[in-house]
Amino acid sequence: MSTTSTEVGTVGNERETHHIAFVGDPGVGKTTIAALVTARLAERTRVQVTGEATQLVTDRDVTTDGALGVEWTVEDCPSGTKAIGSRAERLDTVFVVATPQTLERVVRYERVASRHDVDWFLLVNRFRESARDRLRTVDGPELAEYFYDDEEISSAIADGRVPVLSDWTVEAILIEAIQPDRQGAERALEALERGEQSIVDVEVEKRGDAAPLIDSFETAGYSAAYFECNCRCHDGHVLARRRLD
């Protein structure tokens, strides 16, 4: 059940708050992923974080032009499926963190998320190429992202800091949470103008294609921002939405 709320500050300054949660079995790296996502969000907008991830990253109160008017609450939940049911009424998106060794247990989270009508996606941590075929055969949610087995991640967590992944972005997770459906640029603009969607998502093949696309959305009166992804076939996405102010 989607419960996206709107927080109102001063008149004409409405901002949407999106609630996401990270769940999973013990030892899968759930807190690490939650901290990575929170740290990246904090570079864009105001974010609140709960759970063990607060040991690595704290609430931030910064808003940039790339925020799209969305503020975030990130919940690093206790291990196990019960965490979904107890929070379902306030969640917009749930990310189930698993490793290649725990993929068969993801179905338990699927049952609970489906029962509560919560959108959910799979995140695979400690991924290795040898597990790719196995991942393709998993009958479950859509894969939002995977994180390679990386010594930098283990070292950073041991040192009590958020890992720095120089060649890998976590922004695909944000894209899936905000708007997972892709459209062409013309169709996306039409969907906004007709009020069919409040947020649209357009893939851009090259990073340089983003600026003119953002300009076209802004000229039409919408907010737009670029988000990176790790796909090999394109560089990223432009998300656009109706302005809230």
Results as ranks from 00 to 15, higher is better:
24 G>R: 05
42 A>L: 12
146 Y>M: 11
160 G>Y: 07
35 A>Q: 04
114 S>A: 12
160 G>P: 06
202 V>K: 03
62 V>E: 05
119 D>T: 14
57 V>K: 03
164 V>R: 11
114 S>H: 13
34 A>I: 08
231 C>I: 09
121 F>M: 07
151 E>H: 10
192 L>I: 07
37 V>G: 02
232 R>D: 15
64 T>Q: 01
236 G>T: 07
77 C>R: 07
176 E>V: 12
55 Q>E: 14
87 R>Y: 03
21 A>Q: 11
127 F>P: 01
195 G>E: 05
59 D>A: 13
151 E>C: 02
122 L>H: 05
38 T>S: 09
27 G>H: 06
129 E>M: 09
211 A>T: 10
96 V>W: 03
89 E>S: 11
132 R>H: 10
81 T>K: 10
232 R>A: 15
133 D>A: 14
93 T>V: 14
84 I>T: 07
110 E>I: 12
169 T>N: 06
125 N>E: 07
98 A>L: 11
238 V>A: 02
244 L>F: 00
98 A>G: 03
206 K>L: 13
218 E>G: 00
148 Y>Q: 11
160 G>E: 06
125 N>S: 10
218 E>F: 00
150 D>T: 10
71 E>M: 01
119 D>K: 13
84 I>G: 03
131 A>N: 09
117 D>S: 13
194 R>P: 01
149 D>T: 09
149 D>C: 06
156 A>P: 04
65 D>Q: 11
214 I>N: 01
220 A>M: 04
233 C>V: 15
122 L>A: 08
244 L>H: 00
92 D>A: 05
244 L>G: 00
209 D>Y: 08
243 R>Y: 00
117 D>F: 10
152 E>I: 12
186 E>G: 07
123 L>P: 02
179 Q>E: 15
205 E>T: 15
145 E>M: 14
170 V>H: 02
160 G>I: 11
242 R>K: 08
105 R>Q: 13
67 A>T: 04
37 V>F: 10
157 I>G: 01
82 K>T: 14
178 I>L: 15
99 T>Q: 09
155 S>E: 15
101 Q>M: 11
24 G>D: 06
152 E>G: 08
41 L>R: 03
102 T>H: 02
60 R>Y: 08
39 A>K: 10
137 T>Y: 07
184 G>I: 12
96 V>F: 04
57 V>D: 01
97 V>D: 02
231 C>G: 07
151 E>R: 15
117 D>C: 06
54 T>H: 02
50 T>A: 11
176 E>A: 15
168 W>Y: 12
29 G>M: 08
146 Y>H: 15
237 H>I: 07
12 G>K: 00
180 P>Q: 07
137 T>I: 08
46 R>A: 01
196 E>F: 11
162 V>M: 05
82 K>V: 13
204 V>Y: 05
153 I>W: 03
138 V>P: 02
41 L>A: 05
13 N>P: 00
215 D>S: 13
